[in-house]
Simulated assay, not measured.
Amino acid sequence: MKAYIDYSKPDTTFWREYAHLWENSANRPAFQSPNVLQYFAEKSPTPVAIYKFYNDDDELKGAALFHKRGKAYGFLSDMKTDHNSFVIHKDCGDVEVKFFLECLLAEIRRERWLIVLNNQPMWESYMDVFDQLGRASRLFWLSTKSSVCPMVKFDTPEALHERLSKSRNNRYKLNRLQREYTVEFEALDRDKDLENWTNEFCDSHIVRWSDTPTPSKYRDPERRVFLLNCMQAWHRDGILVRFSLKANGKRIAFIIGLVQGNSLIYHNLTHDPEFNRHSPSLVLVIFLGEWMKQRGLSVLDFGDGNESYKYNFANEEGQLNSIFIASKGNIPFIVRSKLISAVRGNSFLIQLYRQKVRPFTRLMLSA
């Protein structure tokens, strides 16, 4: 077995190997899908560094793609993500997984990297081993809670469906909407109307967040193009599903969904504020339950963030951590990392973190 960091530009041979690896990984992590990472690699302002793990037969069995922002490396998928995972072949056992993680830490030390691994899903099976190895290494290692993913998680699709459909309040809103309008549910997993649907999503998002402290990023034409390209890439990877709610033929609520294993990731949403009293985004979730039951999905992952609407349905939280790694002699990086961790761990400073320190984290990456 061998593992190393490759700084050469990824070519068609690598992308072919990587696509085969991703197809045969445990859950086919949505934010590490091959076409979207290839798009990010082309768009990244800095070169991509790829950590590669090969078995004795010279087959790619694990990989992670990084790029550099300022002095620190991070996941390439940070460009648009809810959580970032390593891509490891489903046939790898404990020995291979440990080798993959040990060698990554050794390469980070040898290359003297500063690295911030954002949005780390602590529910991944390899995370306990990764944490043990990091703490035992000769590196500075700090793993700190950064956010959560509220989830609706059950053993069976039927139980999930029951959870999503049982709210009397949401049922009342659906019935009221149906009395006043002809209501239709859309679930689109092909490329039909993709560009128009994405434009409608962006237009609705702009209206939804106008006259608020956080206006829509889709006012910027480049962000609209970026979203469309992501959507097209996820479609090519076979994981994109677009959900809409129509009232009298007009789309009034939108969800960008990504299928990952037995989960549906509720990645982005918006709705027409003219329909606020009907809570169309919540009504749309009722329809999701039936769609997921028909496809054997038993987990609805609401993605990064603890927004209150998610807890109308969620019965679990998945923890997301940030992991800071560097040589033990890099005092400025260590001080900044500990400051970020301290602020995140203090409930009285959470608001300060959201307004000041999160931008400071980004600044740290570009310092």
Score class of each variant (00 low, 15 high):
F14I: 05
W15I: 05
E17P: 03
Y18E: 00
H20E: 13
N24A: 10
N27Q: 13
P29A: 11
A30T: 14
S33A: 15
V36C: 04
P45N: 09
V48T: 04
L60G: 04
A63D: 00
L65S: 01
L65K: 01
L65F: 01
Y73N: 01
L76R: 02
M79P: 02
M79D: 01
T81E: 01
D82E: 13
H83Q: 08
S85A: 11
G93Y: 10
K98I: 07
F99A: 15
F99Q: 12
C103H: 08
L105A: 09
A106G: 14
E107R: 07
I108V: 15
I115A: 00
V116M: 07
N118L: 04
N119R: 06
P121I: 13
E124L: 11
D131Q: 13
R135S: 10
A136K: 15
R138Y: 10
L142G: 04
S143G: 14
S147R: 03
P150C: 10
D155P: 01
T156V: 11
T156Q: 12
P157S: 12
E158L: 12
E162F: 13
R163D: 07
K166E: 12
K166L: 10
K166V: 10
R168Q: 12
N170M: 10
R171S: 10
Y172K: 14
K173H: 15
R179K: 14
E180A: 14
E180I: 06
F185S: 06
A187I: 09
A187Q: 09
D191N: 14
L194S: 06
W197C: 03
T198I: 09
T198Q: 05
N199M: 11
S204A: 14
I206W: 08
S210D: 13
D211T: 08
K217E: 07
D220G: 10
P221W: 05
V225S: 11
V225A: 14
N229T: 08
R236Y: 06
G238P: 05
R242I: 11
A247I: 03
A253R: 03
F254A: 00
G257Q: 02
Q260V: 15
Q260D: 11
I265F: 02
T270W: 00
P273L: 03
H278E: 07
S279D: 10
W291V: 08
M292S: 04
M292Q: 08
K293V: 07
Q294V: 06
G296T: 09
L300K: 03
F302C: 05
E307K: 13
Y311H: 09
A314F: 03
N315D: 15
G318D: 02
F333C: 06
V335R: 12
V335W: 08
K338I: 06
R344I: 03
S347Y: 03
Q351D: 13
R354N: 14
Q355Y: 07
V357S: 01
R358K: 15
F360D: 04
R362E: 10
R362W: 02
A367P: 01
